[in-house]
Amino acid sequence: MTKKIYTKTVLWNGIWQMSRNTTTMKKHVLPILLFLGVFAISSCSQRQVTRINPDEQTDLSGRWNDSDDKIVAEDMIDQSIDKNWRTEFEAIKGRKPVVIVGRIKNSTSEFIDPIAIVKQIEGAYINTGKVRVVATADERKEIRDEREDQQIFANEESRKKWGKEKGADFMLMGVMSSKTDQYGKEKIVAYQIDFELIDIETNEKVWMGQSKIKKQIKN
């Protein structure tokens, strides 16, 4: 107990003495206070939230984000939409091809949600007005449950019939891979997404394309 009181007295006496002596303050105490001040400020920063344009490209961590989903989807559509597979199909069948977006396999070293890319691609396909897009396997299951429900609970004129689903002509599949080159605080990540469009009836690969994104990340 006595030791504690003595320690406190010495400490506060010393700090009081330091504050009285300007030379001491400048030479020894100020740098320490400055460091502690910076330390305190760094741990007390306040959070700010600002709404930004969803189309704006943003990069904070350097990891794959919504901007990349969008770039890849638009690049893939640009590359594939006016190629022979579609024009020949239209010439033979006299209608727009029906496409289903299948699995985009993630072989990168990042936890990327493939659903987001699938949705971007579906949206970009529909917006071209040149192809029709049908629901994915998971979505179909939900829709069939709803249709089944309608058979019991909906009135006859609004009830939807079985066997009217539009079958897809082509399936789009993709594989994402990445290569990371890193040293010290610098990292370069090169992503490559390989797409294939496959004729569902014949298994023929009617179109193949590649989209690339390269990022330099400095810490």
Binding site: T7, V10, L11, W12, N13, G14, I15, Q17, M18, N21, T23, T24, K27, H28
Partner: peptide
């Protein structure tokens, strides 16, 4: 080094820094 320099100029302040 900082503690002893301070102790030379102001023994009580030096002792305080020593404790810190």
């Amino acid at each position: 080094a900082s503690e002893y320099q301070l102790r030379k100029e102001n023994p009580e302040a030096g002792a305080a820094l020593g404790l810190i």
